[in-house]
Structures are given as C-alpha cells and as structure tokens.
Design a protein around this nucleic acid. Sequence first.
DNA 1: TAATTTAATAATGAATTCATAATGCATTTT
DNA 2: AAAATGCATTATGAATTCATTATTAAATTA
Lengths: 231, 231
Amino acid sequence: MSTLENLSSINRPSLHEELTDRLRTMIVEGVLVAGEKVPERELCEKLGVSRTPMREALKVLAADGLLTLQPNRGARVRAITLDELEEVFPLMGALEALAGELACKNATEKQLQAVRKTHKAMLACFKASDMPGYFRYNQQIHEAILNAAGNKTLTTTYLSLAVRVRRARYLANMSQQRWQAAVDEHELILSALETRDAGKLSAILKQHLENKFATVRQWILNQQDNPPPQE
Amino acid sequence: MSTLENLSSINRPSLHEELTDRLRTMIVEGVLVAGEKVPERELCEKLGVSRTPMREALKVLAADGLLTLQPNRGARVRAITLDELEEVFPLMGALEALAGELACKNATEKQLQAVRKTHKAMLACFKASDMPGYFRYNQQIHEAILNAAGNKTLTTTYLSLAVRVRRARYLANMSQQRWQAAVDEHELILSALETRDAGKLSAILKQHLENKFATVRQWILNQQDNPPPQE
DNA sequence: TAATTTAATAATGAATTCATAATGCATTTT
DNA sequence: AAAATGCATTATGAATTCATTATTAAATTA
C-alpha cells in the first residue's frame, strides 16, 4: 500500500551545511593538509559554489577548532599539537566512560546486536591485516556504543572532539603488538557491555583510550623529529 | 624602560566574532527570547553591520546549538527542553568531575587564592540575599576551578554546554532552603580543593550539579504547566 | 459568512561587487 | 651589494544586489 502517511519529508540541507561536512571530511582525510592555507577561491571554483556559503562553512569549522582564521589572511588547517592532544584525550576519556555507563543502563538488545556485528567485522579485518577496514569498524563500534548510551548531546560533543584527533590517530600506525592488544581490549569491552557491567565498561573504555593516546603521542613526537617537507 | 619587546600585537577580532559573542550574551540574558525568531535585518540595523557577518555569526551559534536554522525561515532561539536538559547535565557532571580532579593536581597557590576570594564575595551576597550577585560569583567560582584545571579544551567544551542551560538556571529561582544547601556545598568544594582531595572534590562537584539540576528541572516542569504568553 | 485561492509583501539564501589589507617585486638609496 | 621603500598584484572582509521562498492579506466563490 502507498498512503501519503509514510512519506519522508524532503530535507535539503543548506549549502553551507553540505560544505561544512564536505570540508570536515577533507580535513580528516588529509585532502586539506594541516598547517596549509585553505584556498578559498579555488575551493569555491572546484566545488561550484560562491564564496558566501563557503565562508559561512569556514566560520563554523573554525568555531569547531578545525581551522584557524587569521584576519585578512584567510583560514589555515589547524594542526593538532601535542599540548592539545594531551588536553583532548582526558576529556574524551571522561566522555567515553560516561558513554559506557549510560550504554550499560540504556542499550536495547537491538543496539547490542549491532555492536556485536560490527565487532565481528572488525575482527575479520584484523585477521586479514586490513588496517583501513579495521579503523572504519573500530570507529563504528565506538559510535555504536555512543548510540546505545542514548544521549545525543554526548554523541555530538564526543564526535566534535574525536574529529580533531582522528587524522592523527589514522596516521599513527600501530605496531602489530599494539594492534593485538587493542583487539583484546575490544573483547573486554564487548563482554562488559553484554553483562551490562557499567563500572567495568567505563574503566576499560578509559584505559583503551589511554593506550591509543600513547601510540598517537609517540607518533607526534616522531613527527617533530622528522618533520614532513613543507612548501 | 620602553623597548619594542613588550608591545602586545594589535588584535582586532573580526566582525563576525564580535557578533557571535554579542548575540550569545543577548541570548543568555534573555534579550533574545527563547522560541522567538531572530530578526536578522532589524539586528543588523541596530548593531550597524551588514547581513554577511551577521549571517556568519548565526551559523556559528547554530552549530553551537544556541539557535536553530529553518531553511528559508531564518533562525530561532533554541529553547532548552527537559529532554535536552537531562542530556546536558550528566555531561556537565562528567566534565566538572574531571575539572575537579585536574584542579587538585594542577592548581597553583595563586589560583586557589582566586577561588577563595570569589568564594568569600559569594558568601557576602548570600548573606545580603543578593541573588544576582550570588549567581555572578557562583559562576566565577566554577570558572576559576576550570581555570585551575589548566585544560583549555575542557574549559571551552564545558562553557559551550553551560551557556545552553545558564538562562534556565538563572530563571529558576532557588528556595531559601536550597540556597542555604548550595552554599554549604560550596564550603565543601572549597575545603576539598584546599586539601587537594581529588576524589572528594570531583564527587562533590557532581553532586552539587545534580542538586542544581533538580531545581532547574522543577522549574521547567512548572513552565510547561503555566506556559508564558506567546505571540 | 466561511473557506479557499490568488496576489502582494516581506524575508531569506546565494551571488556579485566593492573596499581594504597583505604580499611580492622592482627600484632606489646608502 | 644589501636594505628599505614604494608600487602593483592578489586575496580577503564586508556590503549590496538579485532571485527565490514564505507569509500575509484580500478577494472570490461556495
């Protein structure tokens, strides 16, 4: 049957919204390089928009901390510093811990199912040594836990912090050893969630994040010793 | 002596930055009423700016969650709902707890001194039944603790959440009884900070916030029963 | 008289234009 | 030859304009 009831309303995001998403992705994926200027005009031409929505998007991303705006000198992609990283991680830790607690309380069976499924897919990638795939599923699991927590504000806040470090996290390759450890930690995460042991889950998540942090920290330190070519 | 060394560079914030701050204040102070439309053109005239920086500011505030943008229908001041409040408070709780821990670790003697001083000023307001003054100092104390934590990202994140509920918090008048209790809690906060008892401080801060939440919650519920006149 | 349609008005979204600030280059001066 | 100054070019910030969409008021019809 086809009634008018179950039609989803047309929802066309405004240009500047599409642009913010698009640019955010470009930053995370490294299309826009950290430290480099954002060529406003060039981007407008490439993406086929005028400067107004582009500038609105830049302002939003700057407020998000992904860009810095230098008056009359345009925007630069903000490179994450070690100092900033050391500020962001404890914050993310606190939020993950909270997410864990809430997820244990509120997760529906369906949401647990989703976590389980993604966990399995992630394991498969690990066994196949598929690092990009692993990262993708890894991210999905953490987002699924956030979802299960059922607190949209928490999700939004967490994600806006996560974006900032995601690129560094992606670039910082794990050792095989660390990778194995991370997978083990994920097993613990899943089982704590299954048994709805809030205290345990929240502790593991925090620890898991701290371990990740150590890896990324090391990578940044190496970066500073062997800086990439600048133009 | 006057060398060229100790000159501070001229830093003129761009128009849209000034505007975001200005509008944010107007929202918190209730000049822009929750639920009402933001009269874009009128504001432009009153503040003597063109629409471009105004629109950029609106986009930023919308990304911050203070406004909602309805395509082709402009911006509205976002009224905080009970649902949202119940999402925001646990988050703020987690952040306050973290701030407490970090403050106990990192606070300098000078920063402690600042907290003490503000605490005293707040007490004076309480004794004089000066509610607005109390609120101002109360806010300053919590900001001073954030400062003492020495994590700028934490401060920024916390404040962006705090703005959303600040207006509701301000409007929700406390009973005399609750006010006394809040003051007592503040005594505990100060002493935990003095003795740098991280666990204790973080627990008290969380509890303190939960109590505040209960008051605001009650207020919102009453609001829903006796809604203010709409036009 | 009430409801529905149509027209007029107001306001928003996006593009264009204009003004101003910054950068690079050439010329001049020491 | 090196440094500094002035000029030209380029890019950004802000205002204005144009086109589209929503809201309202009015008019017509049932």
